[in-house]
Design a protein around this nucleic acid. Structure first.
Length: 671
DNA sequence: TCAATCCGTATC
DNA sequence: ATACGGATTGAC
């Protein structure tokens, strides 16, 4: 009976076995490879079936690299599946070459790549380039080793006890559960210790973890904490700076299961970690997490898609709380990990505001002199008695935007909420998104009807301070010249956001210069982003209980500065999210920006966008030489429908050889 | 009547 | 993107 069955099965296979063009023998089982071919064309973004010759049966395994002949060209690809039959009607081609049997694209990662491509209206080929590094053959031939023994759950979890629900979160990870949390971290957490404890708990339960941090220096710092916690050989570090061989070696250690923990920059979000138990991301609204290559995925969203798919734990941490993370908390998907009140008060520095007088600022700007209120001088002088003092200055070169003449609130378009800009001195102020003329603009805050341009001043701060404190060394850190660390000796450290050196025993004090200027940038997320930068700077200052003090120079009535004073990123995110909801702005809606020539964008207004959708523009670019932009926004539950429509648009355009349009779904910044 | 060329369509 | 096929054109 069983024999009959087998014979029948064999007979069936023989009948269904596809016609072979020449007499080449086919693989004995599953002789069809479903291949993701590396074609850049949007309308060809689907798998193609190829015959597997017997000689490649053992090599062209699922997840391996192959070379195929496609439309006359030899192209690379990945085997997504091996199947017994094809549903393709036409004649199948043979695999041209099986590159190696190394599994570099596991089905779970392939699924993630597809999900990310679909979410961002991009192609599989574009996304898989971000997920799988280029092959390095000599590295591949070397075998690596796995560390022996197991990792115990750390005993000292005092760090997590500072947060309500922290110990529970830790215990859940250690016992093999998959808790999800948005973590409002206390100063010092950027050293990676608490992250390492959470990872060690995950590893002790027999699972792996991914930790994403913004840049290479963070990888080094958090990687060091990880090594201290887990021991040697237990984690790999993955950054673009590694070079092809080292990068591929780290990737292979993970895909071969020799190491289960990765600390890396945005590309690590795709890392082939085995038995993923936790995905963690530090400072998730840092713009370095936005991939600059199409389709511009954000590492946070990649990790979240992955956690959703495999059911892993999630930890979104940072000094600031992104509105994106806050949305997840308020939807109930993530729990909220916030410091106990005592710890919040005691471990942040004492933060205060010195109001800047508008008239004085105007006078100073025209005379080109830096303005330091009396309180700032006093604070700096006192701070220098006991250590270095950080002077935080906004970066140069922001575009000027418009604000209310009376109350200085940034001007937003009264139709769509976009920023109001004046593109050139001879042009009328208009919305940068929908091009609505701002002639009839009225300030929703104070009712004012006059606009003023916010002139961005420059940072002569270092020079000025040097003169004011002649015997104190002045250290600068910004742009190209970033200093990682300073000693505990008294010094004035002038730094731009993101370039602040860490002080070995904390800064005695910090002055945050030009807070109003930072808020004058025309980006949709300015307030959120500014608070993030200020909190990151304030976190480098000693705790309140150790005498640490921060002085922010700006308008004390601004909600964002009040949140800074209270060290309350969560309260601010909650309020900001509510405001975005009111104004139909991300992340409470899905928004896509389409860029290209104006006459290509105008016809798009008539496409069948999801209902309801709002179309803003098309608007010419600021300098009129760049591409125009059309913005589409739709409720979040229609986000996928919007992405599908955009994919269809790209597909027909690529099939008809029309000019390329840049499509950015959920752009990280929007000017 | 046959070849060179153009356009449209499929690419396993 | 190529590449192929069917239609179209032009010269013998």
């Amino acid at each position: 009976m069983a024999e009959d069955h087998e014979q029948l099965a064999l007979l069936k296979q023989a009948v269904r076995r596809p016609k072979v063009p020449d007499g080449t023998a086919l693989a004995p089982e599953r002789p069809i490879a479903r291949v993701a071919v590396d074609v850049p064309l949007a309308h060809l973004d689907r798998p193609f079936d190829y015959l597997v010759p017997e000689s490649m049966h053992e090599t062209a395994v699922v997840g391996s690299r192959v070379v195929v002949r496609f439309a006359g060209r030899q192209l690379g690809g990945f085997v997504l599946e091996r199947v017994a039959e094809s549903d393709h009607d036409g004649r199948l081609g043979m695999l041209a070459r099986a590159v190696s049997d190394e599994v570099v694209l596991r089905p779970d990662v392939a699924r993630l790549v597809r999900t990310v491509a679909d979410h961002y209206a991009g192609t599989f080929a574009d996304v898989v380039r971000l997920a799988v590094p280029p092959r390095h053959a000599t590295t591949e031939k070397r075998a690596g080793t796995s560390p022996s023994g197991s990792v115990d759950a750390p005993a000292d979890i005092a760090g997590w006890a500072a947060y309500d629900g922290g110990p529970q979160f830790y215990r859940a990870l250690a016992s093999g559960e998959s808790p999800r949390a948005a973590w409002s971290a206390l100063p010092g957490a950027a050293d990676g210790h608490d992250l390492a404890v959470a990872v060690a708990a995950t590893v002790s339960s027999g699972r792996g973890a991914i930790v994403c941090v913004p840049d290479v220096d963070d990888v080094t710092r958090v990687g060091a904490a990880m090594a201290r916690m887990l021991g040697p050989g237990r984690h790999v570090e993955l950054t673009a700076a590694l070079g092809p061989s080292a990068r591929y070696r780290a990737f292979l250690r993970l895909s071969r299961g020799q190491t289960r923990v990765v600390v890396g920059t945005r590309a690590a979000a795709f890392a082939p970690v085995h038995d993923l138990g936790l995905v963690a991301i530090w400072d998730d609204s840092d713009d370095l997490y936005a991939e600059p290559r199409a389709p511009y995925p954000h590492a946070r969203d990649v990790l979240l898609a992955r956690a959703h798919d495999v059911g892993s734990g999630v930890l979104i941490g940072g000094y600031a709380r992104s509105t994106d993370a806050q949305r997840l908390v308020e939807s109930g998907w993530c729990r909220d990990l916030v410091p106990t009140l005592d710890d919040r008060r005691g471990r942040w520095a004492r933060i205060e505001i010195a109001g800047t007088d508008d008239r004085a600022v105007a006078a100073d700007q025209s005379s080109g002199r830096a303005r330091l209120p009396h309180e700032a001088f006093t604070l700096i002088r006192a701070g220098l008695e006991s250590g270095p003092v950080l002077v935080h200055v906004p970066r140069l070169g922001y575009h000027a935007s418009l604000a209310c003449q009376r109350c200085r609130a940034p001007a937003r378009c009264d139709r769509c909420g976009g920023p109001v800009l004046q593109r050139a001195s001879d042009q009328r102020p208009a919305c940068a998104w929908c091009a609505r003329d701002a002639a009839s603009w009225q300030c929703p805050e104070c009712g004012g009807t006059h606009l003023r341009s916010v002139v961005v001043g420059d940072a002569r701060t270092a020079e000025e301070l040097g003169r004011a404190f002649p015997r104190v060394p002045v250290v600068t850190s910004s742009g190209e010249h970033v200093r990682d660390e300073v000693s505990g000796e008294p010094a004035l450290v002038v730094a731009t956001p993101g370039a602040e050196p860490v002080a070995s025993s904390g800064y005695a004090a910090a002055v945050l210069m030009d807070c109003s200027l930072m808020l004058a940038r025309p980006d949709l997320r300015v307030a959120e982003e500014s608070l993030r930068r200020w909190l990151n700077a304030a976190a480098l200052v000693r705790a309140f209980r150790d005498g640490g003090r921060v002085l922010a120079l700006g308008d004390p009535s601004l909600a964002v500065l009040q949140a800074l004073v209270r060290a309350d990123p969560v309260g601010f995110a909650r309020r900001e999210l509510a405001d975005r909801q009111q104004a139909h702005l991300p992340p409470t809606v899905t928004l896509a920006a389409i860029e290209g020539p104006l006459d290509e964008l105008t016809p798009l207004l008539d496409r069948s966008w999801p209902d309801p959708s709002e179309l803003l523009g098309p608007a010419e670019s600021e300098d009129e030489t760049g591409p125009a932009r059309l913005i589409v926004r739709t409720p979040r539950h229609l986000g996928r429908a919007l992405a599908r429509e955009l994919q269809a648009l790209q597909a027909t355009r690529s099939a008809r050889k029309l000019t390329h349009l840049r499509v950015d779904v959920d752009p990280a910044t929007l000017t």
